[in-house]
Design a protein around this nucleic acid. Structure first.
Lengths: 329, 329
DNA sequence: TTGAAAGCGCTAACAT
DNA sequence: ATGTTAGCGCTTTCAA
């Protein structure tokens, strides 16, 4: 593991100046074919790889997009996957920084700032708006999958209220009246999903059956909430797929048939929902579109390009699978 | 978005030299308390964050440990969480690079090499031994949660066979005889777990009941395998918790009581197993210890410290929860 | 305890 | 088409 060769080594080996080597290595025009060949030969012979740190330091840019995500969040995994694809052809790289039980958002963010990321993409951040605004004063910040009122950050999110509207409408069309919502507490998006649920119930003329059971983000939250579901309830809309899985589990254990006795609708269309044995009807957030928009927005901000609207709301869509059906006659 | 403040800006603002600022920012001794305070105040006021590229370029080191992990793997999430804690006080930072459905290990690795990571920690890599050896020729490679015979890479893993031994013994002591194993196919560790299962069954004198059903890593694999479980089977050991969840789900749906009719043991003690409504008896891999060992080994290799044994095997331990009990009389 | 000066490996101006 | 000269922002001598 000896010292790596530098550009100067290559220059010496090829008998040309550093500038020429620099040009050739970047594939820029301005060097003769003969020189080009000599340089590439030398580089190959020495096993030379440019040092990106030095390169970026000099050019004053990092071409790095920082991504802050929750490592325990299945949905974030889907988004990160999509973000990698979205970044692929842009000339920017992703720098991942995870939020874990022992590493908060501030720490995750600080790491990315040190790496001189040119913009930050934050997935469902918990940081209060004021904190985000402070960050946004330093570099472009794009918040994904959470609404933020603050004017200084960009937001790409799903029309959460609309999503619950679709869920309720789907159930109502099937004939359900007693539709309960298990919510996400204070999680990002939870308030809007509650709002959408209420509005849709009222719009369907079944506002008197509105009932919201406190839930959360995890299977466990869903399991606890499921025990509160009354016997006359025929359908449940749940904050997210993970929570819905907990609900399904408790229903199965107590012998309730799904969708025979109770229909269930999740949210996210995460990996979980697609599993054959779960086969969960759910509201899909379009991760591919959202990720593409987030990356594009970050780059636009970096380039100082004009941006028409600070917040982009992506419509969700209903994915009907096996956990919804007509109520028992 | 004006230019980020540099160390020189802070120095000017605090009325001291760049050297002092450098010392203070790194927490090195050699500056008076008064100076230290002035510098930190100035840094805070300007919102200064050191530029890691410049810092590392100058010092000739990156102090970066590259981590390659599967973003869809719940167990990897646990490991990454533990790795962050383990790295915390070492002076090294983690650089995360995810493997996703659209981004293979080679790509994930290449990114980390460009960033000049000083060592690589790979979680359950799929790369064949030859590929790992090639990598290891360039920088220290520590493989976590997978066995690799190749002499050139370090390995930190759980004694998988021992884990299944404990699972089988636990069930046998409860009185089970007809114990089935749902395996992990070609996943890292699967072969050794199969071996452990067989050995333990033989050791218990119930080798004639050995039966292995092909499974996999996911809930879905577990669900499919569960349908193959015969009516006389009283207990199942499953490749991992995620797969076990699928098994539990199918059992619940077909009305089998757990542990009344069938006992189930998982593997990993992941988040999943601990959920109150899952409450899965499982074999715990000690992520804290494994992560600490992995980080320490990487640093030892970087420092050229002598290493006694290339491979470290961490003993797993049984965590008894609610999915195991005596067989029905 | 403090400061001045010399680079790390590279790219961007400016020569030639 | 090629070479020379400055730095990027920081750490590291070395002197004071």
């Amino acid at each position: 593991m000896e010292n790596r060769p530098t550009l100067a080594d290559v220059a010496a080996h090829a008998g040309v100046s550093k500038s020429l080597v620099s040009l050739v290595m970047r594939g820029e025009p301005g060097a003769s074919a003969e020189t080009r060949r000599r340089v590439l030969d030398a580089a190959g012979a020495l096993g030379y790889h440019p040092d990106s740190r030095a390169r970026l330091l000099r050019s004053g840019r990092s071409r790095l997009l920082g991504v802050v995500f929750g490592i325990q969040h299945a949905f974030h995994a889907d988004l990160v996957t999509a973000l990698y694809s979205a970044a692929r052809e842009t000339g920017y790289e992703l720098a991942l920084s995870a939020v874990t039980p022992g590493r908060d958002e501030a720490e995750a963010t600080a790491g990315l700032l040190q790496d001189r990321c040119e913009a930050l993409i934050m997935l469902g951040p918990q940081t209060p708006a004021a904190g985000l605004a402070r960050l946004a004063a330093r570099l472009p910040v794009v918040v994904l999958a959470r609404g933020v009122r603050d004017e200084s950050v960009d937001v790409i999110r799903t029309a959460d209220a609309e999503g619950l509207h679709q869920a309720v409408d789907h159930l109502a069309v099937l004939g359900h009246r007693r539709i309960v919502h298990i919510d996400g507490g204070r999680a990002p998006g939870a308030a809007e999903r509650r709002r959408g649920y209420r509005a849709a119930m009222n719009a369907q003329g079944i506002g008197r059956h509105i009932r919201i059971i406190p839930g959360g983000l995890t299977e466990e939250d869903g399991a606890i909430a499921a025990r509160e579901i009354g016997g006359d309830t025929t359908a449940v809309t749940v904050f997210n797929d993970r929570c819905a899985t907990g609900v399904l589990d408790v229903l199965a254990r107590r012998g309730d048939k799904v969708p025979g006795d109770v229909s269930v609708v999740g949210y996210d269309d995460s990996h979980l929902a697609r599993l054959a044995h779960v086969d969960l009807t759910t509201i899909a957030q379009d991760t591919a579109v959202m990720s593409r928009l987030a990356v594009q927005r970050a780059i636009d901000r970096i380039d100082g390009a004009p941006v028409a609207q600070r917040a982009v709301v992506v419509p969700p869509h209903l994915v009907v699978r096996g956990t919804t059906g007509p109520p028992r006659a």
